[in-house]
């Protein structure tokens, strides 16, 4: 089956790969949640809170797309933050050195993130899962080292590159934070809907099939590597978009964004929320952002360590994350109902 036909649906049977919600329910939910969240700046006009929320939106974008590779395709990629960094640096370099308008360098960042994912993906996706983890981690470290050791001024080296112009320049700090937050929300809306449509399409079915039963899937003629590459490039481009948003929101892009602490916080968000579910990364990001926000007040500099501790505990004791646990409860209810109904019929 060709890729284009697979994405359009073709004559393949449409089935929900995983999860209990329906596609239209999930999309309605995302639209409703974003619409509700968009009102926040009018209710609580606080610069610091909006700043936290804006960064949270960016992490939601990164995590939703990471979840497509990590959760649905079962590819253990540590490269997401690297693709995020590729996007952030592409937009920052184009904005600072080439003076491109923000929307154009954002488009370039999306393309660059996707291209980086394509390059890494072509090299490793044919191989065993562990090699993917090794090479993506090595790619991450490579970017960190190269950018951190660059003193030519092109990438700004360890001090970072700036100032990156915001999308809409204003002098009012509150309006600026609110705009950053709204742009983040818009990106969440776009990426979340795109991800839902992708994982509920036959492509998503092929990804899940490749994850759960690789040999069976390839014996049935599913070109697993090709579908995995689609997932990889999708998540790379979305991470690039997140990176561009981050650069334009933060004003400075520095190698600090590659720190293992952040990588682990993002992983913790996905795992706590529940990987391989539509709502997992969103819920996990919101929950951990709240936790990290309070830990920062009590124990500064160690908030990522707390996130890591939560992640380890979640891997050990909370399989499937919060959403997985909730779905388990819901499924149990459904099962009980089914049993009751069959019992009634028998009677």
């Amino acid at each position: 089956m060709s890729l284009v036909r697979a994405i359009r649906g073709g004559n393949a049977t449409r089935r929900r790969p995983v999860g209990l919600g329906s596609t239209s329910f999930d999309i309605t939910g995302v639209v409703a949640a974003v619409a509700l969240a968009a009102v926040v700046p009018f209710l609580i006009p606080s610069v610091s809170l909006l700043g936290v929320l804006a960064v949270m939106c960016i992490w939601i974008v990164v995590n939703i797309s990471w979840n497509v590779t990590l959760g649905y395709a079962g590819i253990l990629s540590f490269g997401q933050l690297a693709f995020f960094g590729v996007g952030a640096y592409t937009s920052a370099i184009l904005s600072v050195h080439a003076k491109l308008p923000p929307w154009l360098d954002t488009v370039c960042a999306v393309v660059a993130g996707g291209a980086a994912a394509l390059l890494v993906g072509v090299a490793v996706l044919r191989l065993r899962g562990v090699y993917v983890a090794l090479v993506t981690l090595a790619f991450h470290e490579l970017l960190t080292t190269v950018i951190g050791g660059d003193y030519s001024g092109f990438t700004g080296g360890p001090n970072g590159l700036g100032p990156v112009q915001p999308y809409v320049p204003t002098n009012n700090l509150l309006i600026q934070s609110a705009l950053g937050y709204w742009f983040g929300l818009a990106a969440v809306l776009v990426v979340a809907i795109a991800a839902i449509l992708l994982v509920r399409s036959p492509v998503g079915l092929a990804l899940v099939a490749g994850r759960d039963a690789e040999n069976v899937a390839s014996a049935r003629g599913v070109r697993i590597t090709r579908y995995r590459l689609v997932a990889f490039v999708f998540s790379g481009s979305a991470a690039g978009l997140g990176g561009a948003l981050y650069g334009h929101y933060n004003g400075v892009v520095s190698p600090q964004i590659f720190s293992f602490g952040i990588l682990m916080m993002l992983l913790a968000m996905i795992i706590v929320g529940g990987w391989g579910t539509v709502w997992g990364p969103i819920v996990g990001t919101v929950v951990l952002t709240v936790v990290v926000y309070y830990v920062q007040g009590v124990w500064p500099d160690y908030e990522n360590a707390v996130a890591g501790l939560i992640m380890v505990v979640a891997i050990l004791f909370l399989r499937g994350g919060l959403i997985g646990a909730a779905e388990g409860v819901a499924a149990r209810g459904k099962l009980a109902r089914l049993r009751r109904e069959t019992a009634n019929v028998e009677r």
Binding site: L70, G74, L76, F78, G129, V130, A133, F260, G261, M264, L267, A268, I271, Y302, N304, A305, G308, L309, M311, V312, I315, L316
Partner: peptide, 28 residues
């Protein structure tokens, strides 16, 4: 921790993530 997770059916990715988390915790 590793023994608990390695006993699971789909342990490969979970163990990698677990040891990654433990590594960063040790660093902190």
């Amino acid at each position: 921790p590793v023994r608990v997770v390695a006993a699971r059916q789909d342990h490969e990715n979970a163990v990698i993530l677990l040891t990654f988390g433990l590594a960063t915790l040790g660093e902190y």
